[in-house]
Write a protein that binds this DNA or RNA. Sequence first.
DNA 1: TCGACACGCAACTGATTGGTTGCGCAAACC
DNA 2: GGTTTGCGCAACCAATCAGTTGCGTGTCGA
Lengths: 108, 108
Amino acid sequence: MTASVDAGTVLAALADPTRREVLAAVAARPGTATATDLAAELPVTRQAVAKHLGVLEHAGLVTSVRHGREAHYRVIAGSLRPASEWIERTEAAWGRRVDRLQQHLSDG
Amino acid sequence: MTASVDAGTVLAALADPTRREVLAAVAARPGTATATDLAAELPVTRQAVAKHLGVLEHAGLVTSVRHGREAHYRVIAGSLRPASEWIERTEAAWGRRVDRLQQHLSDG
DNA sequence: TCGACACGCAACTGATTGGTTGCGCAAACC
DNA sequence: GGTTTGCGCAACCAATCAGTTGCGTGTCGA
């Protein structure tokens, strides 16, 4: 389970400001949150929130549980890992490159 | 100098796959790279690469030095910090939320 | 000096996307 | 049982964006 999602998908999901707000709003709620709840405290409609929640769920950042006629969303702990791992790997690669560059400069 | 850029801008810059490829290609080059260089090893035109480089530069991830008629691009070490910091802060907030949720559940 | 090369700017196109409104359906409530 | 409420789906709109082509300009080398 928690089949870790592609880093690109996570990064793309985090790219939109409103979507980050939705994500933060879900996380800020004690317990769970519905799209209607979140739309009440955000400057967009319920459908817009629902779309963002769909993207976030597809990126593995939130999960939903249908409870009667309500869909309750909750943040998935550790789901940002793919993104942070990508950043770590990238920075590590840059580090190696800088090493080579330093050596290159001190050589020449 | 290196006025640390908004995390949103960095995340948005990292959202596009091709742009990440361009970034990786710049980092992979020993020394510096020009848009023409990068276009030779990527499946897009020079102008597309140039646009991506513009976005990356605006996000503070690369810097360019005009050298005669050539524009040499180079990765800026540590420039991914805003993004990784945002992720850290967000995960920390989730942690606090999970704590509250655990307490809430054990209380109720 | 003249041709070749590298770049930047501008215009245009097609696809994606964030957002809205409207509707239909199922669940909850009286 | 009928009304309300919450959700999902679909259509649609405007804006953004990735990508292209074309062109003008400046710089390098012969």
